[in-house]
């Protein structure tokens, strides 16, 4: 029997929430170390959404966002996407570059900094998942795209749509002083890997 997200009951969601929690926590401390700043994190919000609703969560299909995309290989195959709204991207890159003004446009250096931030956050996320499940996972190099949310989301949506009609979104809010950084993770295992993942966590029948 193949797994369907419609079968997803609260136990599955709780487990995924916990993974989101631990992963985001590690990601936040990695970021704090990199920026040498105190970073607070809210308990992540894990939700199952239809394709239409995902874009709405991010402020509409035409909202400009930064997406950093990775391929995951190993015991689990799939992709991971880290998505930031544009103001969060500016806050993060400005902190990293040591700028006081958080409103300037993103230049080439900022773009590569964003890829690096995505790399560190997704890397710590993946390693918590790996430690928790005992499954080996390796991240590819990051690929960055800054464009309309709808267009960027079409990539994970297409991937999900081969197996499911819903998307699993892990929303994390990081806070540094007065500034908030809202980041979203999409974990997109292929369908067999999804079963493997749940099985290794002991929740799959």
């Amino acid at each position: 029997m193949s797994f369907s997200l419609d079968d997803m009951n609260n136990t599955y969601l709780d487990v995924l929430k916990e993974i989101g929690n631990i992963g985001s926590g590690n990601a936040a401390s990695a970021l704090a170390k990199m920026l040498q700043k105190r970073i607070d994190m809210d308990v992540p919000n894990v939700r199952l959404l239809s394709f239409e609703d995902v874009a709405a969560v991010l402020g509409g299909e035409e909202m400009v966002v930064a997406g950093i995309y990775f391929q995951v290989e190993g015991d689990i195959d799939g992709n991971i996407m880290f998505l930031l709204d544009i103001s969060s991207s500016k806050v993060l890159t400005s902190m990293l570059m040591g700028r006081e003004d958080y409103s300037g446009d993103l230049d080439e250096m900022d773009r590569s900094a964003l890829q690096e931030i995505g790399n560190i956050l997704s890397g710590s996320y993946i390693s918590s998942l790996s430690a928790l499940t005992g499954l080996k996972m390796k991240l590819s190099i990051p690929s960055l795209c800054i464009d309309m949310a709808g267009a960027i989301l079409s990539v994970p949506a297409i991937q999900f749509s081969q197996t499911f009609d819903n998307v699993l979104l892990i929303e994390t809010i990081l806070t540094e002083g007065d500034y908030q950084v809202k980041g979203n993770f999409f974990l997109i295992p292929d369908s067999e890997s999804f079963e493997k993942l749940l099985e290794s966590l002991g929740v799959y029948r």
């Binding site: 874009a55 464009d147 309309m148 949310a149 709808g150 267009a151 079409s154 990539v155």
Partner: peptide, 10 residues
């Protein structure tokens, strides 16, 4: 008028 917002790989 018909509209679609943020068409990517679709």
């Amino acid at each position: 008028i018909l509209t679609t917002l943020g068409l990517g790989s679709c």
